[in-house]
Nucleic acid binder design. Sequence first.
DNA 1: ACCAGGGTGTTACCACCGGTAACATCGTGG
DNA 2: CCACGATGTTACCGGTGGTAACACCCTGGT
Lengths: 214, 214
Amino acid sequence: MDPEPRREQLLNAADRVIQREGPGASMNAIAAEAGITKPILYRHFGDRNGLIRALTERHTGGLLAAVRAALAEPLERRDRVEHVLDTYLAGIESRPQVYRLLTHPEPGDPSGAGNALAPALRQIAGEITRAVAGQVDLGADRELLAEVWGRAITGMVLAAGDWWLESRPCSRTRMVQALADLLWGRLAAAADLPTAALPAGPAPTAEPSDRPTG
Amino acid sequence: MDPEPRREQLLNAADRVIQREGPGASMNAIAAEAGITKPILYRHFGDRNGLIRALTERHTGGLLAAVRAALAEPLERRDRVEHVLDTYLAGIESRPQVYRLLTHPEPGDPSGAGNALAPALRQIAGEITRAVAGQVDLGADRELLAEVWGRAITGMVLAAGDWWLESRPCSRTRMVQALADLLWGRLAAAADLPTAALPAGPAPTAEPSDRPTG
DNA sequence: ACCAGGGTGTTACCACCGGTAACATCGTGG
DNA sequence: CCACGATGTTACCGGTGGTAACACCCTGGT
């Protein structure tokens, strides 16, 4: 039946040790966790990139499928967008460790696992592009806009979701609303602040000197 | 006068060899390019991360300053947003090699240079957050929205700009318009496509089966 | 009964990398 | 004249990804 049960077992071991030691875990460590030695790993996965790739595909597969399904849901547009956003955030929220090690290569990392999820991101961007181009009337620029927006929305959700997962500033629902609001032009529609006279202070590095203006 | 002219010279050498061999260039190679040997590099930069960091700061400094200045420009909101977008895209367009090696760690990379520009991104996100919170009236959710949007817009422009730089699908001006349109809610405002009856085909991997529905 | 073959496992090794210690050299200034 | 700091070197260490060569066991065909 199962053509490669050992492979799954090895991936499980790799998963464990990487979650414990970070993405920079050595092949030796992974092999040891699996109770074996290096050459077997290389027989199964070719090289380190192959292992990381297999691991990443296993982890991103579910999320990708979920997002794809959410994109096809027959809802009103705003509801569908919120549904997709919520699906993505719920996906990364359910396995924060996995997500973190996939996105943040960690200092002292010998081989970048960060770009390992680049294919998954490209796929999500492609899904969004296809959905937009197939469902929204954008005039002559249809194809270009859909492609740009596919990448843009993917990157936007990636960055915002990343920050949200790390600092947890609000509930998932509020986060979904904030992102959907941005996409819905709330930044453009909002009024100017009355106290717009302040001359944009220098603010050298990252010290947030936010005073509530009295 | 110049307290460290040699350091600049070493950075130039590192720049050259990294542009030639990719971000995975070894310290030996960099030292050789500079006509010296490893220990001197370590005396100047501490360790490899220090070198990469110095290099990254040198490269991102100008772009960061330009974006900051663009954000403070006294323009109408849409114009200001377009100005910031154009500034960023012009920045990465002017040095595509540098940008590429900073963002794409390249396969076979021993040390991730990709996250080296993470600080710069955080700074840009902070600038946007501060600008939004200080200039736009967003009601009670002001602070949260500004923070979310700062990250979201940064990630959006990063991803879209990255793709634009690689595939050059259109002029910079059109790209700016496409992104500003997205931020201005054009996705939300556009009408549904009349042929919305097709049941969202599976499209397994990345094969774009875009038929013009002729 | 025998042996061919494939999966699983091992030890021992290589080239190379980041990083460090110890030593040599040169120019300058008290 | 010598102390000193910057600049430079060779030689080395531990560890990493990756490979070669060899050993074991279990199945199955003849």
